[in-house]
Measured scan of single mutants.
Amino acid sequence: HDVTIHAGDKTIHVHGASEEFLRIIEQAKRDGIHEEELLRLIEELVK
C-alpha cells in the first residue's frame, strides 16, 4: 500500500505500508492521538 498521511503541516508518504501499519494509524486517529505523537509513531514504524 502507498499511504499519504497528513499530520498538521506535514505530509508523510509511506510506500509499501503493511496492513498492520494501516490499522495502527487508523486506530491512532480514532483514539484522537495528537498529530505530533502520530508523527513519532509513524517514524518508529517506518525505520
Rank of each mutant, 00 (worst) to 15 (best):
1 H>E: 10
1 H>C: 05
1 H>P: 10
1 H>W: 08
2 D>E: 10
2 D>Y: 08
3 V>M: 10
3 V>F: 07
3 V>R: 03
3 V>N: 06
3 V>E: 04
4 T>E: 13
4 T>W: 00
4 T>L: 02
4 T>V: 15
4 T>N: 08
5 I>A: 04
5 I>Y: 00
5 I>E: 04
5 I>T: 02
6 H>C: 08
6 H>A: 11
6 H>R: 12
7 A>Q: 08
7 A>P: 05
7 A>L: 15
7 A>M: 15
7 A>T: 13
8 G>W: 01
9 D>A: 11
9 D>H: 09
9 D>K: 09
9 D>R: 03
9 D>G: 15
9 D>E: 13
9 D>I: 06
9 D>S: 15
10 K>S: 09
10 K>V: 12
10 K>N: 11
10 K>P: 03
10 K>R: 11
11 T>N: 09
11 T>G: 09
11 T>A: 10
11 T>L: 09
12 I>C: 03
12 I>H: 04
12 I>S: 03
13 H>Q: 07
13 H>F: 02
14 V>Q: 02
14 V>M: 09
14 V>W: 05
14 V>Y: 01
14 V>A: 03
15 H>Y: 00
15 H>N: 10
16 G>M: 05
16 G>K: 02
16 G>R: 01
16 G>E: 07
16 G>N: 13
16 G>C: 02
17 A>M: 14
17 A>T: 06
17 A>P: 08
17 A>N: 04
17 A>I: 14
17 A>D: 03
17 A>W: 10
17 A>S: 05
18 S>C: 02
18 S>P: 11
18 S>G: 11
18 S>V: 04
18 S>F: 05
18 S>E: 07
18 S>Y: 07
19 E>A: 06
19 E>M: 03
19 E>W: 01
19 E>D: 15
19 E>Q: 04
20 E>Y: 01
20 E>K: 01
20 E>D: 15
21 F>G: 06
21 F>S: 10
21 F>Q: 12
21 F>I: 15
21 F>K: 04
21 F>T: 13
22 L>V: 14
23 R>S: 14
23 R>N: 15
23 R>I: 12
24 I>H: 06
24 I>S: 07
24 I>T: 11
25 I>C: 02
25 I>M: 09
25 I>S: 00
25 I>F: 06
25 I>A: 01
26 E>Y: 00
26 E>V: 06
26 E>C: 06
26 E>Q: 09
27 Q>M: 09
27 Q>R: 10
27 Q>T: 11
28 A>S: 09
28 A>I: 08
28 A>N: 02
28 A>V: 07
29 K>R: 14
29 K>C: 06
29 K>H: 11
29 K>A: 10
30 R>D: 06
31 D>H: 10
31 D>V: 08
31 D>M: 11
31 D>A: 14
31 D>G: 09
32 G>P: 02
32 G>R: 05
32 G>H: 08
32 G>S: 04
32 G>A: 07
33 I>E: 03
33 I>N: 04
33 I>H: 06
34 H>K: 14
34 H>T: 14
35 E>V: 15
36 E>W: 06
36 E>G: 09
36 E>R: 04
37 E>G: 11
38 L>Y: 07
38 L>C: 02
38 L>P: 00
39 L>N: 06
40 R>K: 15
40 R>L: 14
41 L>A: 02
41 L>Q: 02
41 L>C: 02
42 I>S: 00
42 I>D: 00
42 I>R: 00
42 I>T: 01
43 E>K: 06
43 E>I: 13
43 E>V: 12
43 E>G: 10
43 E>A: 14
43 E>T: 11
43 E>D: 12
44 E>W: 06
44 E>V: 07
44 E>N: 13
45 L>F: 15
45 L>Q: 05
46 V>I: 14
46 V>L: 15
46 V>K: 07
46 V>G: 09
46 V>E: 07
46 V>W: 04
47 K>H: 11
47 K>P: 10
47 K>C: 09
47 K>D: 08
